[in-house]
Amino acid sequence: MQPEAEERRAHKRAVRQAFDRAAASYDAAAALQREISARLADFVLAQAGPTPRRILDGGCGTGHGQEALARLWPQAERIALDFAPAMLAQLPAAAAARLCGDLESLPLADASLDAVWSSLALQWCEPATALGEIARVLTPGGRAWIATLGPETLWELRAAFAAVDDDRHVISFHPLAHWLESAASAGLDCTARDGSRVYARAADLKRLLRDIKQIGAHRIGPGRRRKPLGRMAWHRLEAAYERHRLADGSLPASYDLILLCLERPA
């Protein structure tokens, strides 16, 4: 097996393990996920289009998107897909049909969906592969509604770690241009897009990092696993992050939100 393929397989295993471990604590720390799901729903409402009959919630997590989808299209058949079995197990009993699967290799037939909704899942995927799969399963004229993360996500943490060492501690995400190029290569038209900043906040850095860990978004980028920071390095990190403290006394963590409406041409 080529080194790149093995690294990708290891990355996927780490993603699944991280979100499986986070499933039980996810909802308690997922205020940011709920806010972004609400923003994606508002983005959908701003775009006119046909009512879908069959929708995939791709990377459903514990089901935050299910409530939004039920409000948007109450008569539609919903399929909730996630890579992590423990996340699917947290879905309410009355939720949509559940499917454990990979967004990069969807276990669905060609042209079998009218719409795909994916909120904060595709950033863990290779864009060209995942969008190619979405294009495959959409019917002609079908749409994908996507909320993902851009490269300025957690920039405060990246800057603070730069004061500690030269290692890569913070995951890098693809810019908007890369998503648009990947969509075009997959045969999808971008009919609408938007971007904004969303902020997580905590009283101190330990709580901020704990919340990131509790939603699974830690140690899942490629590269070696690092030892915990020593006491002196931790104090340097805290001091560097203090520069970002807000007037209300909280420490922020920025999330660079990208919203996309992609359509498979009829």
Rank of each mutant, 00 (worst) to 15 (best):
E6N: 05
E7V: 09
R9G: 09
A10P: 04
A18S: 15
D20A: 01
R21P: 03
A29C: 05
R34S: 13
D42G: 07
V44N: 00
G49Q: 01
T51N: 10
T51H: 02
P52F: 13
R53M: 10
R54I: 11
I55H: 07
G58C: 15
G59V: 14
G61W: 11
Q66D: 09
E67G: 12
R71N: 10
L72Y: 01
P85Q: 05
A86Y: 02
L88Y: 05
L88Q: 03
L88M: 02
A89Q: 09
P92I: 04
A94S: 05
L103A: 04
L103F: 12
L106C: 11
L106T: 10
L108P: 09
L113M: 14
W117D: 05
S118K: 01
A121M: 04
W124Q: 07
C125Y: 09
L131Q: 10
G132F: 12
W145A: 00
A147T: 03
T148P: 00
T153L: 11
W155S: 08
W155C: 07
W155R: 15
L157F: 07
A160H: 04
A162F: 02
A162Q: 13
V164Q: 04
V164H: 07
D166Q: 12
I171S: 08
S172Q: 13
L176P: 05
L180H: 09
S182I: 03
S182R: 13
A192I: 00
D194W: 01
G195V: 07
Y199C: 11
A202C: 04
L205G: 01
R207C: 00
R210P: 01
A217D: 14
R219T: 10
G223L: 10
R226P: 01
L229N: 02
L229V: 06
G230L: 13
R231A: 15
R231F: 14
M232I: 14
M232P: 00
A233S: 12
W234N: 00
H235Q: 15
A247Q: 15
G249E: 08
Y255V: 08
D256V: 12
I258E: 02
C261E: 01
